[in-house]
């Protein structure tokens, strides 16, 4: 039943390969100790601890509810970044990914996309609940979810880049946090800004537009710089 080598292998095609890798990444995100649930749990803990630290007075909490939700979002988004590339490097899967039909740039973007779906999406659903509990006006709930969803894409792209840059470093998880948190400042500013504008009766559209622009920018940078960092770590 020997098959000649020149029986042209059916390439998975760009869409096929994208789907195959995305499915694997999502599976790994869920199987690796329930990553999304962990991030949501961490997020809930942060917002639960805060009133204990600053006092439960609604007059102090309510004005800062949106901002705190965004801070907690940024921190919770850091949690599962370390496993994105580090494990693939350790077990040799990164070599396999480098020899596929898709360029490494696409691999990095697909990983970022999987990170967004696996972590950003559940967090975007948790964020309004936590913000409500802190005293956010109920009218702002849809905007909170929407801005957290867009911002989550930015966190995922920037986080993926940070994970690629920290490849091979000892205690990479801490390094990722130090590299990535400063880069999380713009989405936090824009996202919390959108909520603040909406709370004061202004249109949140400009802040959301800035948030979207950040996501696009982060996506492009993450793809190219991330792929370069991965190649460097392999060599």
């Amino acid at each position: 039943m020997s098959r000649p080598v020149d029986a042209e292998p059916r390439p998975p095609g760009l869409r096929g390969a994208t789907r195959v890798l995305l499915e694997r990444e999502l599976d790994l995100a869920w199987s690796g100790g329930g990553g999304p649930l962990l991030a949501c749990g961490f997020f809930a803990c942060l917002t639960a601890v805060l009133p204990l630290a600053v006092g439960g007075d609604p007059r102090t909490l309510s004005p800062v509810a949106g901002g705190i939700a965004w801070l907690a979002l940024a921190l919770a988004s850091l949690l599962s970044l370390e496993r994105l590339f580090e494990r693939d490097l350790e077990d040799g899967a990164l070599d396999l990914l480098a020899l596929g039909h898709l360029p490494l740039e696409s691999v990095v973007l697909i990983k970022a996309l999987a990170q967004w779906i696996a972590v950003g999406l559940p967090l975007a659903l948790t964020a309004p609940v936590a913000a409500l509990a802190l005293g956010l006006p109920p009218a702002l709930v849809p905007l909170t979810a929407l801005s957290a969803l867009i911002g989550g894409a930015g966190f995922a792209c920037t986080g993926t880049l940070g994970a690629a840059l920290a490849l091979g470093a000892k205690r990479g998880g801490l390094l990722i946090a130090v590299v990535v948190l400063p880069l999380f400042i713009p989405p936090v500013v824009f996202g919390a800004g959108a909520l603040e504008r909406a709370a004061s009766g202004q249109s949140p559209a400009p802040a959301l537009a800035f948030l979207g622009a950040y996501v696009l920018f982060a996506g492009v940078i993450a793809a190219f710089a991330g792929a370069a960092a991965v190649r460097n770590a392999q060599g």
Binding site: R3, P9, P12, V20, L96, L99
Partner: peptide
Amino acid sequence: FQCDWLGHVQCG
């Protein structure tokens, strides 16, 4: 995954 990712024939 490995076969799909690298491209395969039908019965690979």
